[in-house]
Amino acid sequence: MVKGKNVQHWVNGVKVLEYTRGSDEFMAGIAKSKFSKVEPVFGTVEKGRIQLQDHHGPVAFKNLKIRVI
């Protein structure tokens, strides 16, 4: 869920992650990540495509729903 620059990640009704885009902590995390080399604007764009990823194992996505709350 995104409200302005505040972001919350929920999985099956449980909040698993919360951060503020553009914060010092957020930008430091991106700088240390693999995404800093692949996508220079990663995490800073407010509108655009949604990125789905795996972590080097089998993955499946089904019935994804994106809606305005």
Rank of each mutant, 00 (worst) to 15 (best):
V7M: 03
Q51M: 10
Q53K: 07
G43R: 00
G29D: 12
K34V: 02
G48P: 03
N6F: 07
V14T: 14
V45D: 06
T20Y: 02
H9F: 06
L17T: 13
K62N: 11
V2Q: 15
V45I: 11
D54F: 07
G43C: 05
D54M: 11
H55T: 02
N6I: 07
V11T: 08
V59L: 02
V45E: 07
W10F: 13
P40H: 02
V38L: 13
K47V: 03
G13N: 11
V38Q: 10
V2M: 09
S36R: 03
F26V: 02
T20M: 00
G29A: 11
F26M: 08
K34L: 07
Y19N: 08
I50Q: 00
M1P: 05
V45F: 08
L64W: 08
E46T: 10
D54W: 09
D24V: 06
W10G: 00
Q51P: 02
K34A: 08
L52P: 00
E18N: 10
Q8F: 05
V59T: 12
G43Q: 01
K62E: 10
K47R: 12
F61C: 06
D24G: 11
F26W: 05
G48W: 00
F42R: 01
K62V: 11
N63W: 02
E46M: 15
V41G: 04
V38C: 02
G57E: 09
G22Y: 09
F35N: 00
R49M: 08
M1Q: 05
V59M: 03
Q8P: 01
V38M: 10
E25D: 13
G43W: 00
A60D: 09
H56Q: 13
K47Y: 11
N63Y: 03
K47P: 00
K47M: 03
H56M: 09
A60P: 01
L52W: 10
G4R: 10
A60R: 09
V38R: 05
A31L: 04
G57C: 06
P58M: 09
R67T: 07
K37T: 04
T44E: 09
Q51G: 12
R67W: 10
Q51Y: 13
V16M: 14
E46S: 13
I69K: 03
E39M: 08
P58L: 07
K37R: 05
V7I: 12
I66Q: 08
G43A: 06
H56N: 14
W10P: 00
I69F: 12
N12Q: 13
F42C: 02
Q53D: 11
Q51T: 14
K62F: 08
L17W: 14
N6D: 11
K34N: 09
R21Y: 06
V38H: 03
V45L: 14
G29K: 06
H56T: 15
A60G: 03
M1V: 15
R21I: 07
S36E: 01
V68D: 15
V45M: 12
W10N: 02
Y19T: 12
V68E: 15
V68S: 13
K5M: 09
G22E: 01
T20F: 03
I30L: 11
I66H: 06
Q51V: 15
Q8E: 12
T44V: 08
V2T: 12
Q8V: 15
S23V: 04
R67A: 15
A28K: 15
S36I: 01
G48L: 01
V41H: 02
K65T: 00
G48R: 04
I50G: 00
V7Q: 04
R67D: 15
S36Q: 04
N6K: 14
N6H: 15
F61D: 00
M27H: 01
F42W: 14
V2L: 08
Q51W: 13
